[in-house]
């Protein structure tokens, strides 16, 4: 679904990291790395917004370069850690934004659009607050809606850039539950960056780790935590595993 070949990502003069050959299939994948290692840059690169790289990124078997922005929007959706809507949009209006890539030049809503939105509201159980104004919702509710919006976009890949950064414990828990729900009921690849280690074995099929300028794929859930801690030089903490 998403593959990297001889990828090397730079930011200006700085070499961030390289990856020889990685292939991601559907399921939940975490992206882990210390601050500044280039997690956000990797997500941006996959979105086609960061051009400073060499090698190849394949989206659904085709090179990233061959996608026009409008077509890429049908392949990849993203959720950022914080979102702000300018205007008095309801949660439902925000969800509908996910349908934009499928709409004509006048952004005309179709029955399919509405049906899709309603389906996702039901799937993610957003009914309680979906018709309230987005800007008055709590951070947790906002983030659920933004995830719903990404699902509505009907892409094979959903990226989440530290989606839980501003959420409390309960909301983080719910976020993971929702991601699992989405993974279970759809065939999507869900790639989220995080600093939260405890959830990885339970939730993720594999983990992408950026460390020492290298992007690695860890595929065995039982080794997630130890590998990460070891690579961060913190072997002695492995017993703290929850």
């Amino acid at each position: 679904m998403l593959a990297f070949k001889q990828l090397e990502i730079r930011a200006g003069a700085r070499h961030l990291f390289a990856a020889s050959s990685i292939h991601l299939r559907n399921g939940i994948v975490a992206l882990v790395g210390r601050n500044g290692t280039g997690k956000s840059t990797l997500l941006k690169t996959i979105m086609g917004l960061h051009r400073d790289f060499s090698g190849e990124i394949l989206v659904d078997g085709k090179s990233l370069d061959s996608y026009k922005p409008a077509d890429l929007a049908k392949e990849i959706a993203i959720v950022y850690s914080k979102s702000n809507i300018f205007g008095s949009h309801s949660g439902r209006d925000v969800l509908m934004l996910g349908r934009l890539p499928y709409q004509n030049a006048f952004a005309k809503e179709t029955a399919v659009d509405r049906e899709q939105v309603n389906r996702i509201i039901e799937l993610l159980q957003l009914e309680k607050f979906i018709d309230q104004e987005f800007s008055v919702l709590s951070d947790g509710e906002k983030q659920l809606i933004m995830i719903g919006r990404a699902v509505v976009q009907d892409t094979k890949i959903i990226l989440l850039d530290e989606p839980a950064a501003f959420l409390d414990l309960v909301n983080r828990h719910q976020l993971m539950r929702v991601l699992q729900e989405i993974a279970k009921s759809t065939e999507k690849l869900i790639l989220f960056s995080t600093h939260q280690m405890d959830v990885l074995p339970k939730v993720c099929q594999s983990v992408l780790l950026i460390d020492q300028n290298e992007l690695r794929l860890i595929e065995d859930p039982t080794t997630f935590i130890t590998t990460i801690y070891k690579s961060f030089g913190m072997d002695n903490l492995e017993t703290d595993e929850v």
Partner: peptide
């Protein structure tokens, strides 16, 4: 029309919806 609809969510989100 479409860019403006998308831009209410900011440029980052707008870029992600094409």
């Amino acid at each position: 029309v479409k860019p403006l609809n998308a831009l209410v969510a900011g440029t980052d989100y707008a870029a992600s919806i094409g």
